[in-house]
Amino acid sequence: MTTAISIKDLHKTYSNGFIALNGISLEVAEGDFFALLGANGAGKSTTIGIIATLVKKTSGIVEVFGSNVDNNSYETKLDLGIVPQEVNFNHFEKVFDICVTQGGYYGLPRKLAEERSEKYLKQLGLWDKREQQGRQLSGGMKRRLLIARALIHEPRLLILDEPTAGVDIELRRSTWKFLQELNRAGTTIILTTHYLEEAESLCRNIAIIDKGEIVENTSMKALLKKLDTETFILDCRDDLQGLPTLDGFDLVQIDNHSLEVTLDKNQDINEVFKLLDQQDIKIKSMRNKTNRLEQLFVSLLQNSANRAATTQEGRS
């Protein structure tokens, strides 16, 4: 399978001495929907900046579809679409002009740039706003305009840096749907996000970056398998007459109608239902208490911090 992006031993130290990347290596296959997760300042945006040539690396190799970004920047840039975290279009330009101009920068003849602009502005629900200036758009529309602009030259690899930050749920869902369709049509997508639910629903593979190092790089399925416990909220049909006691299970009463139960890998939720039924407590519905990925993410970062602390102790 072709590799869409290959990063080898990438280092970045800023002029103030801050080490943003400490030798990360990563490969993303063509056609993948890949999540790059990390806390603020972990190195996600620096990595994207280096791929986009907006940030100069200290050392390491970055290849896009087998071409080194240092030697073949024309070729690699044609294959690459970048949706930045911050809105970075000219606020005084019209929406349509922003897209057509970007097409021109990628060598599209004006007519084709206009056709593509119409196509993507329509797909992203911005066609009605084409004559408005960028600054007149709402926050969510600005984010979708960034996506439309990045797609004008129809890149094989699209990198989105927190594309749904500050976007309401409805818009976020429609953006997800759009990205999934794009990925099904063959575009490789790399996504950084703060919404872990987003990564869990969309991405097949995942890398977690912490303090400039990759602490996990695996498939989403394999990562979620590592989860030791899972917590459920159970909504009861009738009022509870106190906290029921179930052998082998920890229950917490949230309110008159709700219970919280945490299961480890070897326990079965059906057993909980059976025991509650024996006490004449009927369950109406059930949901996960926390985002599963969030739980793992926190635990991975905690492990990473503990490892760092142990190494530090060993040195002193």
Binding site: E75, F89, Y105
Partner: peptide, 17 residues
């Protein structure tokens, strides 16, 4: 102003020499 608004990045990420 393009530098200030960061819209110069439109050009910098593109293949324009």
């Amino acid at each position: 102003s393009q530098k200030y608004q960061r819209s110069i990045e439109e050009l910098l990420v593109s293949p324009v020499p």
